[in-house]
Design a protein around this nucleic acid. Structure first.
Length: 552
DNA sequence: TGGAAAATAT
DNA sequence: GATATTTTCC
């Protein structure tokens, strides 16, 4: 983020000048709070009923940075209403009542903190944290105009302060009450592993989940990597009790950076009373968790409602973005080198475990396997008639060596994963032409520039002689002998093949002996003209339209 | 570890 | 019941 002197000067005394909306029906209380806030150079706008306050917020949202709303037993609806309506405004609830359910409800409805009255200066002094937190955690798109300057200023400030070694006092406070978690008293420094998370449990906020290696304040009791991965997740649940937030910055530590690597996972967290509450971390764009408001809209037993949402450990939501990363990682590694651990490394996504990746990889492969042959099925028949009547119904052999580590990547384009039921998946697995995936998909062809997906398994007819030699050369160059390796079933000692295996074996041999035969090796097919000529020479007149397409 | 399959969750 | 994801097993 750019740090300009101008920005800095704009709010060099941050958080002084922070505009606070105070909603408190109790005029005495309001006056008291107001005076305290003003003593800290906060600008206070007092309202005694939610409608006025909401009206003010809606008419000039940029006028407030944070809100302090009182909840009382008599009229908490108004407070909740405000809370639910003014979602963009970090809202701190305060009350004389300490009903855990009320607190929970407030939090569930989006309150950033629940402070018990009376509000001491210490408590009030740090409300700016929520503003900063929001400024840094709101997705770029979500960042309101009000928060932008805050963020910029803070960044600027941090920049300077960091050079001085330490952040300004920023009041290392500790809010009590609802805040059972160890809070971050400082502003987010580029190196800190947490955001300036408010002291109160947040059940929302785009955040990252604990990463294996970043489970800073948690126990690292697990020695085994594997378990650490898992513990890293559940750990956040168990050891951060009271702090539903399990935010961990990405390795880069840049406040903004993590946003794009946030994993969408659901996490359960132990709440104060031990009940579980689920938190869904997602990309910043999804920040508004309807779930939360939904849960909050329920009765005081919000807790139990939340608890049922999920009891299991984290569940990775393979959003298109995440999947894209995955695919890119796979691409980068090459399909043959794409193993969970490496993919995981490349993805650099917090909270994602090797298992998650492995699982996804498994699915990914399955989809590919499932789809590719299907596509080929449409094309092979013709070939059968002409070249390989003995060829199995499916070009089994033509499968790319997805699971073979010693095979050269003969990676065909990643096809869509089929026709998924969910729109999201449709995107994820990329229906033809789905923009986001196009680049990725073509990426797969990197090792074989110019080769089109359709070349794979296309009813390409025996290429002319001239091409044959080229083909052979290429095949050699690309170590196509290795391709045969992927036909592991044909290992010498596997004498008792299934009938299908025998066929496979046969085909493999044939392929070996007749390299000029068009196996789906991902090689560039001959030019359309040549193919057409050859086809017609063989009396084949029916030509699938995609041949032309794939070659031109 | 990687990968397949079983078990669960949604 | 179908899928997606996690767990388990090898």
């Amino acid at each position: 983020m750019v740090c300009t002197a101008n920005e800095l000067s704009e709010w060099k005394d941050f958080p002084k000048g922070l505009r606070v909306l105070l909603l408190d029906e109790d005029s005495n209380s309001a006056a008291d709070i107001k005076s305290k806030l003003e003593a800290m150079d906060y600008i206070v706008y007092t309202f005694c009923n939610e409608n006025e306050a909401l009206s003010a917020v809606s008419s000039r949202p940029e006028s407030f940075h944070v809100a302090i709303v009182e909840v009382n037993a008599d009229n908490n609806n108004g407070s909740f209403k405000f809370l639910e309506t003014a979602k963009d405004l970090p809202t701190i609830m305060t009350s004389n009542i300490h009903c855990i359910n009320t607190m929970m409800k407030c939090i569930a409805l989006g309150a950033v903190e629940f402070l018990r009255k009376p509000l001491s200066e210490d408590k009030l002094r740090n409300i700016w944290q929520h503003v900063v937190h929001k400024a840094f955690n709101a997705g770029g798109n979500d960042l309101s105009q009000t928060l932008k300057p805050v963020k910029e200023s803070v960044v600027s400030m941090l920049h300077l302060e960091l050079e001085n070694g330490k952040l300004e006092d920023k009041d290392s406070e500790k809010t009590e009450d609802a805040s059972m978690a160890h809070e971050d008293d400082h502003e987010p420094s580029p190196r800190s592993d947490k955001y300036p998370a408010p002291s109160t449990p947040q059940i929302k906020q785009g955040g990252r989940l604990l990463d294996d290696g970043d489970c800073q304040d948690n126990t690292n009791c697990s020695t085994e990597k594997e378990s650490m991965e898992q513990d890293g997740e559940s750990k956040s649940v168990e050891t951060t009790s009271g702090n539903a937030i399990a935010e961990v910055t990405a390795s880069d530590g840049q406040p903004q950076g993590p946003r794009e690597t946030e994993t969408v996972v659901k996490e359960e967290a132990d709440l104060v009373d031990g009940t579980k509450e689920s938190t869904k971390y997602s990309h910043s764009q999804n920040r508004s968790h309807s779930k939360d408001s939904h849960a909050g809209a329920e009765k005081p037993n919000t807790v139990s409602s939340l608890s049922k949402v999920n009891r299991k450990k984290l569940k990775v939501d393979w959003t298109p973005e995440l999947h894209k990363k995955f695919v890119q990682a796979v691409d980068q590694l090459g399909i043959d080198q794409a193993i969970p651990s490496r993919i995981l490394e490349l993805m650099k996504v917090e909270g994602l475990t090797r298992h998650n990746v492995a699982s996804h990889l498994q699915k990914y492969r399955m989809h590919r396997r499932h789809i590719l042959p299907k596509e080929d099925d449409r094309r092979w028949p013709q070939r059968d008639q002409t070249q390989r009547s003995c060829f199995p119904h499916k070009p089994i052999m033509a499968f790319p060596p997805y699971h073979s580590n010693h095979v050269v990547p003969v990676s065909p384009v990643y096809p869509m994963w089929g026709a998924p039921p969910h729109p999201a998946n449709i995107q994820m697995w990329g229906s033809p032409g789905y923009p986001p995936w196009q680049p990725t998909e073509s990426w797969h062809w990197k090792p074989y520039p110019g080769v089109h997906a359709d070349a794979w398994g296309c009813p390409v007819m025996p290429p002319p002689q001239g091409y044959c030699s080229a083909f052979t050369q290429n095949a050699t160059g690309f170590n196509y002998s290795g391709t045969m390796d992927c036909r592991s079933p044909m290992t010498p000692n596997s004498v008792e093949h299934e009938p299908e295996d025998e066929i496979i074996d046969k085909v493999v041999k044939e392929a070996i002996n007749k390299p000029w035969l068009p196996l789906p090796l991902g090689l560039k097919p001959p030019s359309t003209d040549i193919v057409l000529a050859e086809l017609s020479r063989q009396g084949i007149s029916t030509i699938p339209p995609h041949i032309n397409g794939s070659n031109s």
